[in-house]
Design a protein around this nucleic acid. Structure first.
Length: 664
DNA sequence: GCACTGACCGTTTTT
DNA sequence: CGGTCAGTGC
């Protein structure tokens, strides 16, 4: 792309004051506009730290920061003189760290990961005496998550609940939320929800936080949920310098509470808003864009947009039919290997996109077999591995001994003779007193709650944590991590637990990675703290770079459509174009209106990632749980290739006057 | 207290 | 197929 901005882009960059909505289609240089705008603001005298840019993913914020830095030529400068480019979640953590006590929480908090959430869900369900088979913790979390992303508190949830499960979930939600509060823990959704509540209840705090910035920019605005919407309003209503950028056709987070209405309603909320449309696509060839446009036109409810290709011609997208998912992986990987032999083509030019996290498995096996470099984005995270979680649990306990899931995780890991029976006693005694497990540990032996042997073990454990906490105040983070490993003898535990040397080595390496991550965090952060490190880990803000970035710098990308949003690749493979996968079975079966439309947008996101060549593939049979089943090609294939009738079009041709309402 | 075994069960996407 | 968990035997 040339460095010249086209007229609408220029307008979006030059109009610096007041509210602005940038409706930007796929591949129209959205990120470019945002970064240029930041640069323009600074050139016009806005001091950089008065600018806040919010993105959805950490990757996007990193990229934006990099580009803005380049544009401004401020590379070596201190962080203070840089704009704040952050994800929503990181922003909210910062705000909550300053004010959470106002909401009745202990002064500090830890962010729970998925495992912590499950443990807390389990105990909440136990508290309401919910039989195991009536509602599982996972299901409860799914229901509660749905409420939280729509800003529904326990009180309102109780009145909204319809089914038996929902009623149980509402009761458990109340407990769950209260327990988290007393323990000083917040889950992912709370980060947004509590910030919203903070702003609503304490206008003074809202103003204080809002006054830090003179300009607010929001990327991927179509994916904002209720809380985010309110937070943005709260931050921008004073100065009104709010610029939001988004594309309703790429709204793929409806299931997480995102409401496209927000982008459609923007002009009503901010009546003097300037609206700029970016419709020139610089990314894909006309052939690819043709497929994308034909496909998305099947969605009835949308902002009408015409994406004009800047690149004419191009190779027509291919549809490949394979025998099963193994052949699919073999064929695609073999083809990539073949194309890679051509000069000037690199592994990073390829992406294999999937609907589910399970699909990449077959590809991974195959890529390994033929020894091609790849990076699997998402899926089982490094930080989900058992040994990593154990080690992090120690750090969490050092930071906040009241973090109960962390405590229960490591109180007997490595085994130190504090068995299930003892732990149960300790938990019961804490619950009956309404206190923390950590606080009953010192007196447990003298109260005769636990056996003499266990008493000694518990005493030793307390000493261990005590000495680590002292060390934490003096040692650099990486050294603290090493000390934890040494004092807990965790490496010997690995030797014991994993007889397979390969397995063992991999796990040793994971521990080493944490030490590296800590060192990296310290190096890249101005004021490093244990809290800050744990925040970054919980939010996926991996400062671990080296290894990951090295890989990413030249590897075939293997990821889901959701992860691929905002990215682009010369060669894109969309695997598993089958009914039940894309669109996913769950959406096909769903009663909810618009479920298929969201799947179609997902498909659209996939298609519009491709710059030069797009390949769609489906398998005739696919294995699931060891059983092979026949499949049906995705309806989207027929739609894209013009083999399906577009009912909406027909109706319109007959009755052209009738205007479609642009709502979801 | 701990390790091992077998029954059971699950089908999406993520910060 | 692969992971989880309760129950069993040492």
């Amino acid at each position: 792309m040339s460095d010249q901005l086209n007229p609408p882009q220029r307008e979006a960059v030059r109009t610096l004051r007041g509210p602005m909505l940038v409706l930007a289609g796929a591949g129209t240089g959205k990120t470019r506009v945002v970064t240029h705008r930041i640069a323009e603001l600074i050139r016009n005298g806005t001091s950089p730290e008065r600018i806040l840019a919010v993105t959805f993913t950490r990757k996007a914020s990193g990229e934006m920061l990099e580009r803005a830095t380049k544009l401004l030529g401020t590379k070596g400068k201190k962080r203070k003189s840089r704009p704040l480019i952050s994800t929503f979640h990181s922003l909210c953590v910062k705000i909550l760290r300053r004010h959470i006590a106002q909401l009745g929480y202990p002064g500090r908090f830890t962010i729970c990961d998925r495992g912590d959430q499950e443990a807390e869900a389990r105990s909440a369900l136990r508290e309401i005496r919910c039989p195991n088979e009536s509602l599982r913790p996972g299901d409860m979390l799914a229901i509660v998550g749905g409420w939280k992303t729509r800003s529904i508190d326990p009180g309102r949830a109780a009145s909204l609940a319809e089914t038996d499960k929902e009623h149980l979930a509402a009761a458990a939600y109340r407990r769950y939320q209260n327990n988290l509060k007393t323990k000083g823990m917040v889950d992912f959704d709370d980060l947004l929800l509590l910030t919203q509540q903070l702003f609503a209840k304490f206008p003074k705090i809202r103003r204080e936080e809002a006054q830090r910035f003179d300009h607010v920019l929001i990327d991927e605005y179509q994916d904002t949920n209720q809380s985010q919407y309110q937070i943005i309003r709260g931050l921008a209503m004073g100065h009104r310098n709010l610029c939001v950028v988004g594309d309703d056709d790429q709204s793929i987070y409806g299931w997480r509470g995102a409401e496209v209405e927000h982008i459609l309603r923007f002009e009503k909320d901010w009546p003097d808003a300037k609206v700029v449309r970016l419709e020139n696509n610089y990314r894909s060839t006309a052939a690819i864009l043709g497929y994308a446009n034909t496909l998305i036109a099947f969605n009835a409810v949308r902002h009408e947009k015409v994406l004009r290709p800047a690149r004419s011609g191009g190779q027509k997208p291919r549809v490949l039919q394979m025998q099963d998912e193994t052949v699919e992986a073999q064929k695609i990987v073999a083809e990539i290997g073949h194309v890679l032999k051509q000069p000037g083509i690199a592994a990073r030019d390829f992406a294999i996109l999937c609907r589910t996290n399970e699909q990449p498995r077959a590809f991974e096996t195959e890529l390994r077999r033929v020894n091609l470099p790849y990076i699997l984005v998402g899926g089982m995270s490094f930080f989900d591995r058992k040994e990593v979680r154990d080690l992090l649990a120690y750090l969490k306990i050092i930071e906040n001994p009241h973090d109960e899931p962390a405590l229960l995780r490591i109180i007997n890991t490595p085994p130190r003779s504090i068995g299930n029976a003892t732990v149960k006693q300790l938990v019961d005694s804490a619950t009956s007193r309404g206190g923390h497990v950590w606080d009953v540990l010192p007196s447990a032996g003298s109260n005769g709650l636990i056996s003499p042997a266990a008493t000694i073990a518990v005493e030793k454990f307390c000493e261990l944590i005590g000495s680590l906490s002292v060390a934490a105040k003096e040692l650099p983070l990486a050294d603290l991590v090493r000390l934890v490993l040494k004092k807990t003898d965790y490496r010997r535990e690995l030797e014991r637990a994993y007889p397979d040397p390969n397995d063992r080595d991999a796990r040793h390496a994971s521990l080493e990675e944490i030490v590296n991550a800590a060192a990296n965090y310290e190096e890249h952060t101005e004021d490093p703290t244990l809290t800050g490190f744990l925040d970054d880990v919980a939010l996926g803000n991996r400062d671990t770079d080296d290894k990951e970035d090295q890989l990413r710098s030249n590897a075939i990308a293997l990821m889901t459509y959701h992860s691929a949003k905002g990215l682009e690749f010369p060669y894109v493979y969309m695997a598993g174009m089958e009914e039940g996968i894309l669109p996913h079975r769950r959406s096909v079966d769903s009663e909810e209106a618009g479920a298929i439309d969201e799947e179609r947008r997902l498909c659209y996101v996939g298609v519009t990632r491709a710059q030069d060549q797009l390949t769609l593939s489906f398998a005739l049979t696919r294995r699931k749980w060891g059983k092979s089943r026949d499949t049906v090609p995705s309806r989207f294939l027929y739609e894209m290739t013009g083999q399906a009738e577009n009912g909406k079009r027909r109706a319109e041709e007959r009755n052209p006057k009738k205007k479609r309402r642009a709502t979801r």
